[in-house]
């Protein structure tokens, strides 16, 4: 994805996006631009469609209307092969981790490498171990997902998402279920990956501490109006008097 994209082109954009389940419109007129190196937060109350928007962005659910652009290229109007190629440039951490249960952690992380590189098995194993170590799971290479805790599964999911050093990482509620220390370590890892590898992040999160600590851009989806009610840096949103009351309420835990 990165080879064909000029530096000014947003990595991920949406134009007049409408998402619906049958007749029920979940959100409409969603426009966003995620630029290289952004840590982009999708915020909003429960049920406003954050995770669904993420599924649309990562190619798992087609929008009812509007476009999703990957480096300027229309994702949903592209052919199947092109779409699969574009998806190889992304990594995804699902809410539950979504590790393949029949494989060990090393195999989970190693599978994308096995499929898309010509590396030897030993090198794949070494890379998988490195990614697991970065996610704080050194020594757990030969464990099956059912043998580790929920938080560890989530971190292993992140290691798998990072396997191919993707341009864009989608993280769905990365801190949920993690203890405060692990959550802080995860934030540090996200910042480190952004600073060293230039990885772009699109994150769905409720964790205000995380949001203010790492995000430099984002949108607030409002469940009542079913569209974007605020956009920009979350800290600026908080201090801007023009920020929509629903967004302010969210960012101040209902106190604003």
């Amino acid at each position: 994805m990165s080879m064909l994209v000029s530096p000014d082109t947003p990595r991920i954009s949406t134009r007049d996006l409408t998402v619906a389940y049958g007749d029920y419109i979940l959100m409409r007129d969603v426009n966003l631009d995620v630029r290289k190196g952004d840590i982009f937060l999708i915020m909003g109350g429960s049920g406003c469609g954050k995770s669904t928007l993420l599924r649309v962005l990562m190619g798992l659910k087609a929008p009812s209307k509007g476009r999703v652009l990957y480096g300027g290229q229309d994702f949903w109007n592209a052919g199947e092969d092109v779409r699969q190629g574009l998806m190889r440039g992304i990594g995804v951490l699902f809410q539950s981790g979504a590790l393949w249960s029949s494989m060990t952690l090393a195999e989970n992380v190693g599978l994308p490498l096995q499929q898309y590189t010509d590396l030897e098995d030993a090198e794949i194993r070494e890379l998988a171990s490195l990614k697991l170590a970065l996610a704080g799971l050194a020594g757990f290479e030969d464990y099956y997902p059912s043998e580790i805790s929920g938080g560890m599964r989530k971190r292993a999911g992140l290691a798998r998402a990072m396997a191919l050093d993707p341009d864009v990482l989608f993280l769905d509620e990365p801190s949920a279920g993690l203890d405060p220390v692990s959550s802080r370590l995860l934030d540090d890892l996200i910042l480190e990956l952004r600073d060293t590898l230039g990885t772009t992040f699109v994150i769905v999160s409720h964790e205000l501490a995380s949001i203010f600590a790492i995000a430099n851009n984002g949108i607030f989806l409002d469940a009542a109006t079913r569209t974007v009610m605020a956009r920009g840096n979350p800290t600026d949103m908080l201090h801007d008097p023009a920020t929509a009351p629903s967004a302010r309420k969210f960012l101040t835990r209902g106190e604003g």
Partner: peptide, 17 residues
């Protein structure tokens, strides 16, 4: 069960059929 656990989605987003 893999559908429920999003494991099938994880395959798709890795670009695997």
């Amino acid at each position: 069960t893999m559908q429920v656990n999003e494991e099938v989605d994880a395959l798709s987003t890795t670009g695997l059929s």
